[in-house]
Design a binder for these strands. Structure first.
Lengths: 346, 346
DNA sequence: TTTATTTGCGCAAACGTGTGCACAAAATCC
DNA sequence: GGATTTTGTGCACACGTTTGCGCAAATAAA
């Protein structure tokens, strides 16, 4: 594409036109106290009239700030993350930041590469939900040490002392498990993500707490891990089949993520298993219309949009803070259990 | 955030360390023929060893290229667009471009503002699916005239002579309508997006073609438009209710987009209308598991990921082309009709 | 040996902004 | 009226790269 010469106007152009120096123009536009009101007005009027807008790239080079924030998630086509993105974008937009999106695809290697790219891009800050493979945080630490503010959300880590935005994973899991038990289910299986993830630990914790509370013994074989977070349906199918091959089959499944919930439901369908007669199912999901499923699906819904907003706000606050921030917060948003037919005995 | 001094190394640093000029270092790294092999190797080794990476912002300023592409869609949390994003990101990543995402929320005003921001960011190119409100293309034209390559996808326009990537909207709609007719439905309604959109026209075209082929008279009252593309459920509910208030009620509904399909299905559910006994429903949707619905949902599936890939490839080709491109193509990807229970009489 | 060519490198300017400093003119103070 | 402060502006450089041009040394041609 032969680029047509951009007809955008620069500070130097204004300076020439008004017979001023570029420094005076620059200072006028930034409302410097050193410049007389008349000159300021003159410059501003001319700028306005000629549709001047500062060259953001030049500003970035000069200031070492890019007015952009990086986002690292495992996958965009995912009900939960898509909503998070939307929340982040709404804040970023209103505060004048742009959003650069990268996907880790649950791969530590890809995540590391993306982080490198984002650093080279000199993003002003990073929002990250860790990939399910990630155990080595050295890249992230390095980035943080070099002064890039980071805010964790969803899948967090304590390896860096910074803000975290999560939902009450343990509470949500507890509530659902309790609901299962009170509905008469005793043998409750749990299909979840990689055991290293914070969300996995917390959700399992809530699950175990409910079991303990009702004196139901824990069967470790009832807990199945999808190391790739359910990216592949086969991975989930293996878990389901393993559960059904057990001598004492579970009578309910608590699924720990959007992908896994929808995937498990789909596999049960494919295997022609009656829900909730043969087995009940419910779990974390942000699908917009779980009431449309057959049977309607009980879900733990997360405030994903809100999570994106809060995370973005915290990050931008960090970026724009004049002094080093030392006190960090862990925001815990509530989940909502929506009981439907897939988890209630008829 | 007090920014710690970045410890990244620059060309000037290398020059000083090796007692060379920065121009020699720059040329060495870019493999210029003007530099001796020994010097090149020396520089490259040093750069490699000290983990040098060019400052992309400085390169952008110098070259007037930002290695980033802008994306404008109406909404991220949408099965179709989320997949498109993923496709775009995969290509962008592999070609060294970053993706800057903006949402129009089906608003012409917001779209225009976002376009401005993207221009100021000096994105190298733009991928756009128009908002349902957009009728004024002057911003877009201006952007294009200033030399920013643009590729349309999904919701396209002929106002600019450039590449377009779409699916066979007319064909998909025709196929589904024909399926309805062959399944015994005669009074087929159509709930669709804003009448100005390309996809609306094309899908309606396919619908009308099938009706004509089977000599079914067109009832204009059976065609309902959601001016905001179904962003709000109320908008869809109005359409559904209007259809049910008619003296001669339709016996099937063909819905024209993901949002509208899921929304209509949800409203029928809420109204306790039996599908497909009372009314059949099917339409465009990229939801991952329509077989889980009650009843399973007949859909026209679009190759969204593929569409993102193709659009991104075409755009990057435009961006990187040495000479002005004058021949533009309109890629038409196939749709896939998946017949399930929601559209078949029992 | 002299002239012409090639080879390898550095100087300096440019992209568009922002800012420390100098400096002249105006205003204020003794 | 002279000394001092205030006010307003411009010069010059920096951010990190890239590139046209010039120039000396090395090589080739005459």
């Amino acid at each position: 594409m032969s680029r047509v010469k951009k007809d955008s106007i620069t500070i130097t152009d204004i300076a020439k036109a008004l017979n001023l120096s570029s420094s005076t123009v620059s200072r006028s536009l930034r409302d410097s106290y050193q410049i007389s009101d008349e000159t300021k007005q003159l410059v501003k009027d001319y700028a306005e009239k000629n549709n001047y807008h500062p060259n953001l790239v030049a500003q970035s080079l000069r200031s070492n700030k890019s007015q952009s924030i990086g986002l690292m998630i495992c996958s965009v086509p995912n009900n939960f993350f898509a909503e998070v993105i939307s929340g982040i974008e709404s804040i970023a937009y209103s505060k004048g930041y742009h959003l650069i999106i990268t996907q880790s695809h649950e791969s530590q290697e890809r995540e590391a590469k993306n982080l490198e790219h984002l650093m080279w891009r000199s993003v002003d800050g990073l929002l990250i939900s860790l990939s399910s493979e990630t155990t080595d945080m050295s890249n992230l630490k390095k980035m943080h040490e070099q002064g890039v503010p980071i805010v964790f959300f969803d899948r967090v880590s304590d390896c860096i002392n910074t803000h975290q935005v999560v939902v009450d994973n343990s509470g949500g899991a507890y509530e659902l498990t309790k609901h299962f038990i009170e509905s008469g289910y005793k043998r409750i299986a749990h299909i979840t993500s990689s055991p290293d993830l914070s969300i996995t630990l917390e959700r399992k914790e809530g699950y175990l707490k409910a079991l303990a509370e009702f004196n139901i013994p824990v069967n470790e074989n009832y807990i199945k891990y999808c190391l790739h977070g359910g990216m592949l349906l086969d991975e989930i199918a293996e878990c389901v089949d393993a559960l059904f091959d057990m001598e004492e089959r579970p009578d309910a499944i608590f699924t720990a993520s959007d992908r896994i919930t929808i995937g498990t439901f789909a596999i049960l369908h494919k295997r022609n298993i009656k829900i909730p007669d043969d087995i009940a199912i419910a779990g974390f999901s942000n699908f917009s219309s779980p009431e449309l499923f057959n049977p309607s699906l009980t879900t733990i819904h997360q405030p994903a949009f809100e999570m994106g907003k809060v995370a973005a706000e915290l990050l931008i606050e960090l970026i724009e803070s004049k002094r080093p921030v030392t006190a960090f917060s862990k925001k815990i948003l509530p989940t909502k259990l929506n009981i439907r037919k897939s988890s209630v005995k008829i």
